[in-house]
Simulated assay, not measured.
Amino acid sequence: MEQPGFTASLVAGGVAGASVDLILFPLDTIKTRLQSPQGFYKAGGFRGIYAGVPSAAIGSFPNAAAFFLTYEYVKWCLYTDSSSYLMPVKHMLAACAGEVVACLIRVPSEVVKQRAQVSASSRTFQIFSDILYEEGIQGLYRGYKSTVLREIPFSLVQFPLWEFLKALWSWRQEHVVDSWQSAVCGAFAGGFAAAVTTPLDVAKTRIMLAKAGSSVAGGNVLSALRGVWRSQGLAGLFAGVFPRMASISLGGFIFLGAYDQTRCLLLQVGREGS
Rank of each mutant, 00 (worst) to 15 (best):
I137Q: 07
Y133P: 00
V176T: 08
Q3Y: 05
A94D: 02
F242V: 07
E134I: 03
I248M: 11
G227M: 15
A57S: 12
Y144G: 00
I248Q: 11
A56K: 05
V111I: 05
E2W: 05
L265R: 10
A56T: 01
W171F: 07
P37R: 10
V111R: 15
L225G: 00
A224W: 04
D260G: 00
S223H: 13
F128H: 07
G59I: 04
M1A: 06
A65K: 12
C96Q: 04
E272K: 12
G190L: 14
R230N: 08
L93M: 14
R47P: 00
T7H: 11
F164H: 11
R115W: 04
F125E: 11
A258G: 03
Q35M: 14
D130R: 09
F255G: 00
K42D: 15
F25H: 05
G270N: 13
V228E: 13
T7I: 11
Y79M: 05
W169V: 08
Q268S: 11
K90L: 07
V157L: 11
T198E: 14
M87I: 12
E72D: 13
V202R: 13
K166M: 11
A193E: 12
W171H: 08
V15I: 15
I105V: 11
R226W: 11
T32I: 09
P243R: 13
S247G: 04
P199W: 07
L104K: 02
A65Y: 13
T205K: 06
G236Q: 07
V112A: 02
L24H: 02
W162Q: 10
P54C: 08
V241E: 12
C264Y: 06
A97L: 12
E174L: 09
G190H: 06
E134Y: 10
G273R: 14
Y133F: 06
V101S: 04
F192L: 15
S155F: 03
L165R: 06
M1I: 05
A116V: 02
V15P: 00
Q261L: 12
W171S: 02
W169E: 10
R271C: 02
G236E: 08
V100Y: 05
S223C: 04
L93W: 05
P54T: 05
V20Q: 10
L86F: 13
A56Q: 06
F61R: 03
G44C: 06
L34D: 04
S122D: 08
G218Y: 12
T32L: 08
Y50V: 03
M208T: 01
